[in-house]
Write a protein that binds this DNA or RNA. Structure first.
Length: 876
RNA sequence: GCGGACGUGGUGGAACCGGUAGACACACAGGACUUAAAAUCCUGAGCUCUCUGAGCGUGUGGGUUCGAGUCCCACCGUCCGCACCA
């Protein structure tokens, strides 16, 4: 008996080589077995993998390996989201080329991923920064352009005047650029857009079909799309008060039913009418400026009170020429939603009510909430925005809210102002088109040329890819493509005259909007091989972080459709790319900072030592012996330095240990706390499995031994446990409840070690079965250890190629069942009866119990409820 | 403000469709082995009490039910998302 400890760091590379030699994870497009496409969100090659990657890829790998064992033809590819800002920043800081930096990172991280023992098909590897990838993206872009799904328009951007670059909203902090600290300007810039709004309804409706997506993500996307059904209503302006050239004001409302509660109109500071009015009033102009400044900072918005300024303009109520309503510029009205103008009904909208109270504007209740009396109903400081009965609303009085909406719509649609109807029904969306222009180097070039005569001219398909110039410079701010001496000079493909290349590159979300589809045919001459796409797609299980709930996942859903509609679909006419989505939680860790440091000086977990337990735990810095404060448990991050390096864990404990830890205890969708104790626990379990198999290999019957017809009780008990566990673990892996599967495996190994000390008829044969079952069950989770155990059991094959063990249904049910016995709902005892006992026999057995008689205290039971195989409840 | 999720031992968490609450693990305590330690193995443990028994117990308070962690209502707390969306 070899009682040596299992040396994971020594054995893991061996098995990784064996898998590679056997090339077992390569997926064939021609395989006839049912397919299963398992995908984890591909990483940005930032330099090294982190624990979040370890968790994400472990989950995907368990699922992929399990599905392989279940006989599926599994596609499990990996690639690199390789374009993006950090590479350019690194280029600036270290004077390397973004491409060099990125490729070096990919090499490192690929090695790290390999050391995790993932069952990946590396033959399909994609890096989005490779011209072999982005040439196809450019091709798709041109086809979208052709279909009108890509277009240019002027739009406002956050401009950093120091870095000379456009910033995303999240890069603007307190009105300043996140890197430069410069005050961000709002600039009008002509930008490229994708027409995602053309799919608003489809994207919203199809959410209903994504039943294997988390409800939370679907809800977030639905809110993001933000569909509302309302009306556009044109209000005539009182001629005497209106600026020249303005005769009406068009507003958007979702509550035309409350039209008779109108108290004032409110328009955005950027509304043309506001601008016109401001020309004559310096005070108004000043107010508008103030509103615009507010727009930059979210923190200001949160605390800002509702403010307005009376323009002096009066609007005429659509149902009453004599009724004039003041027009205010208000800081809470947004120019880019609806028409940038609203009518306000204070009794039905809290915001309007606050405003009306502040400026002493009329508040007329028009909806009587259910259960209220009109005579006594008054509006205090709470608006009522629910459904009810119309009051104070002339011809609408007595109608329900919905009926009133329809009635107003009907009347406004048939009334004319000028030549057009006063009102029309209008569905509005919060969703805006996707701006994809980035004034940066390290992204996919937008393949068009600007010609003075011909305008925007697409680069002909035969000239793709438009490659990034290798010799760009990164020594100063601004767009390296724009200042490159020759790159942007191109001849117009149409007329041949000198023209300028587009110097914007695409948002990296474009790259990740179709990589999953490219994996199905990574070498195809066209963006997609429609046969391969039809074969593999949709992705059967997609796994990634919740932070991509909206943008990446919504863009991908859009882009996949847009591709299909511009000639790059799958043969199966699929619309949704991801059939099932799982969002895993973050990896968190305690934080450590030098005592009394302010600003905090954080220390790495590896730089400190912890003593004591529980509340009396203290930490000191290893290098200096200085005291260290133990802080909150938060997401692992560079800034808090609460990082554990996967390489260190793998080198010391092995990949299986890291994988097992990631799967244990915490439900996968919740955050997991990385602790040293947890790693040790996982490490102990690995040794325990090894000892069990080692011991079992000596005690068990030889391979292929027949299971005897009659088994001793211990043997039968173990056999039942084996088959029950197979069944439970399978169901838990299918449902991605890895922590529950892990608990089942712990329980099973307890049963197995106990069985190893027993004697029973046929036990040796059952031990052999049990050992093989155990190894096959841990194989998806701890694949290296499983191979080692498989070899110890006498095989020279790979357990990675073995089928998942079949659970015998006959062994999943027991002959005897234990029933709890309750008296008046309180558990008093339990009885063991044959599973097939009838209710009468169970009742008799329960009533005969001493504990039951004592609880009944001589009283006769009123009623006895017997739930077969579950419980007996005696009602006294 | 709106929307959503979640509250279970010292800790992470389990509990299928309303049927024995606390599986499994971590931490802890005791024991075995050892010169000793580590490792390993065994045992114990929700809380309380008048302790061979009983009471209480899944954030709080109600309700439905023979029976509620699970369903319903109200409240409290924590976390997340969106944010003046007309």
């Amino acid at each position: 008996m070899a009682t040596e400890r299992y040396n994971a760091p020594d054995r893991e590379p061996h098995w990784q080589k064996e898998w590679e030699k056997a090339d077992i994870f390569r997926a064939s497009n021609k395989d006839l077995r049912p397919k299963c496409y398992v995908l984890e969100m591909f990483p940005y090659p930032s330099g090294r993998i982190h624990m979040g990657h370890v968790r994400n890829y472990t989950m995907g790998d368990v699922f992929a390996r399990y599905k392989r064992a279940r006989g599926f033809n599994v596609l499990h590819p990996m690639g690199w989201d390789a374009f993006g800002m950090p590479a350019e920043n690194a280029a600036m800081e270290r004077k390397t080329h973004p491409g060099t930096w990125t490729m070096a990172n990919i090499e490192t991280m690929k090695g790290q991923l390999k050391s995790m023992g993932l069952s990946l098909d590396w033959s399909r590897e994609i890096a989005t920064c490779s011209p072999d990838y982005y040439r196809h993206q450019q091709r798709i872009f041109l086809d979208l352009l052709n279909k009108g799904l890509a277009y240019r328009r002027s739009s406002k951007v956050n401009w950093d005047p120091v870095d000379m670059t456009v910033l995303a909203n999240e890069q603007v902090i307190d009105g300043r650029g996140w890197r430069s600290g410069a005050l961000v300007e709002q600039r009008e810039l002509t930008q490229w857009f994708f027409k995602i709004t053309a799919y608003s309804d489809e994207l919203l409706d199809a959410l209903g079909t994504l039943d294997k997506w988390p409800e939370k993500v679907r809800l977030m996307q639905a809110n993001w799309i933000g569909k509302s059904e309302g009306m556009l209503v044109r209000w005539a302006l009182d001629k005497k008060s209106a600026p020249k050239g303005f005769s009406e004001l068009e507003i958007y409302t979702t509550r035309p039913d409350t039209l008779f509660g109108a108290s004032f109109m409110a328009i955005a500071a950027d509304h043309p009418l506001a601008k016109a009015a401001a020309e004559k009033s310096p005070e108004l102009a000043a107010f508008c400026d103030e509103c615009r400044r507010m727009g930059t900072s979210v923190a200001d918005l949160e605390t800002a009170e509702k403010k307005g300024f009376d323009t002096g303009i009066r609007a005429i109520h659509p149902f009453d020429k004599e009724w004039k309503v003041p027009v205010y510029v208000a800081n809470f009205v947004l120019m880019d939603y609806g028409t940038g103008a609203i009518f306000a009904c204070p009794s039905g909208d809290q915001r309007d009510l606050d405003f009306a109270r502040k400026y002493h504007l009329p508040v007329v209740p028009v909806i009587l909430p259910p259960g209220e009396q009109q005579a006594t109903f008054t509006v205090g400081d709470k608006a009522f925005d629910g459904a009810g009965t119309m009051i104070n609303s002339r011809f609408l009085d007595g109608l329900t809210t919905t009926e009133a909406f329809d009635e107003v719509a009907k009347r406004l649609e048939s009334t004319k102002l000028g030549k057009k109807p006063v009102g029309e029904r209008k569905v509005n969306y919060r969703l805006r088109d996707w701006g994809i222009s980035r004034q940066r180097y390290w992204g996919c070039p937008i393949p068009v040329v600007h010609c003075d005569d011909c305008g925007v001219v697409p680069v002909p398909a035969k000239d793709l890819p438009v490659r990034l110039p290798e010799d760009a410079t990164f020594d100063k701010p601004g767009n390296p493509l724009d200042r490159h001496p020759i790159w942007k000079h191109a001849d117009c493909p149409k007329c041949g005259k000198k023209a300028r290349r587009e110097t914007d590159t695409m948002d990296t979300f474009v790259d990740s909007s179709w990589y999953y589809a490219r994996f199905t045919s990574p070498d195809a001459k066209t963006p997609l091989d429609e046969e391969a796409a039809a074969h593999w797609l949709p992705v059967d299980q997609y796994i990634g972080g919740i932070e991509h709930a909206i943008l990446h996942l919504l863009y991908s859903r859009f882009f996949f459709r847009a591709m299909a509609d511009s000639g790059h679909g799958s043969r199966s006419n699929l619309r949704e790319p991801f059939a099932a989505l799982f969002t895993q939680g973050m990896v968190t860790h305690e934080t450590y900072k030098r005592e009394g440091s302010d600003p905090a000086q954080w220390l790495l977990p590896s730089e400190i030592r912890i003593e004591g337990e529980g509340a009396s735990r203290t930490a000191t810095e290893v290098a200096t012996g200085a005291p260290v404060e133990i802080g909150d448990i938060v997401k692992m991050s560079k800034s808090k330095k609460n990082l554990v390096d996967p390489d260190d864990i793998i080198a010391h404990w092995g990949a299986d240990c890291a994988r097992w830890f990631m799967l244990s205890d915490s439900p996968p969708e919740r955050d997991v706390i990385w602790t040293e104790a947890g790693v040790q626990g996982a490490g102990r379990f690995i040794q325990r499995i090894w000892r069990i198999i080692d011991d079992l290999a000596d005690k068990a019957a030889p391979r292929g031994a027949e299971i005897p017809a009659v088994l001793g009780p211990e043997a039968l008990e173990l056999r039942r446990a084996s088959h029950k566990t197979v069944d439970a673990v399978a169901r838990n892996i299918e449902g991605l409840r890895f922590n529950v599967a892990v608990a089942g495996l712990y329980e099973y190994s307890n049963a197995l070690s106990a069985a190893l000390t027993k004697q029973s008829n046929g036990l040796d044969v059952i031990l052999r079965e049990a050992g093989e079952i155990l190894v096959k069950m841990i194989a998806p989770m701890m694949p290296h250890l499983a191979e080692e155990c498989w070899a110890r059991l006498g095989y020279n094959t790979l357990v990675a190629n073995e089928a998942w063990p079949a659970a015998d249904p006959a062994l999943l049910v027991d002959d005897q069942v234990t029933l709890a016995v309750q008296v008046n709902g309180k558990r008093r005892d339990e009885i063991v009866v044959p599973r097939t006992s009838d209710a009468k026999a169970v009742e008799a057995a329960a009533l005969a119990l001493e504990s039951v008689r004592r609880a009944l205290d001589g009283k006769a039971p009123k009623k006895v409820i017997v739930v077969p195989q579950r419980i007996v409840n005696i009602v006294a």
